[in-house]
């Protein structure tokens, strides 16, 4: 099923673009498909920045006073500059989404192992487990 919110947001951004600029905005999009889920990604209307929240040094390293020598430069006002900032937003969205999916998968795996352990070690009848 298509993500209605994402589609509306895309349309809204395109209308704003046509009103504000002769040069069309470059908007990267993405689609994720797994055996149990389909999801569309759209960076939204912004504001966007090249300073991603899921890239660069971790908070722990940053708190120790580390200087990020690979820190991205700020995006220019050009069409390509805006594309780079939108790509950063999209990258953050995807990283957060897939990290959450990985945590869910790990938790489910742990539950399955726990169930197996209980059945084998404690003699719990599988039919009794919800």
């Amino acid at each position: 099923m298509p993500n209605l919110f994402s589609l509306l947001e895309s349309e809204n951004c395109q209308i704003q673009t046509q009103l504000s600029s002769a040069m069309p905005d470059l908007i990267p999009t993405a689609t994720y498909i797994s055996p149990d889920l389909k999801k569309d990604f759209h960076p939204g209307c912004g504001p966007h920045s090249t300073q991603g929240t899921t890239t660069g040094p971790s908070d722990v390293v940053a708190d120790k006073g580390a200087i990020d020598k690979d820190r991205p430069t700020e995006a220019s006002d050009s069409t390509l500059g805006e594309l780079r900032a939108r790509l950063t937003t999209l990258q953050d969205q995807v990283n957060v989404f897939l990290t959450d999916r990985m945590k869910l998968g790990a938790a489910k795996e742990e539950d399955d192992k726990d169930l197996e352990r209980r059945i084998l070690d404690d003699g719990v009848d599988e039919d009794d487990v919800e």
């Binding site: 470059l26 994720y32 498909i33 797994s34 055996p35 069409t79 390509l80 594309l83 790509l87």
Partner: peptide
Amino acid sequence: LDYIFQLDVPFI
């Protein structure tokens, strides 16, 4: 390989 991701990036 059941996990699929498509990225579409427009250029000028």
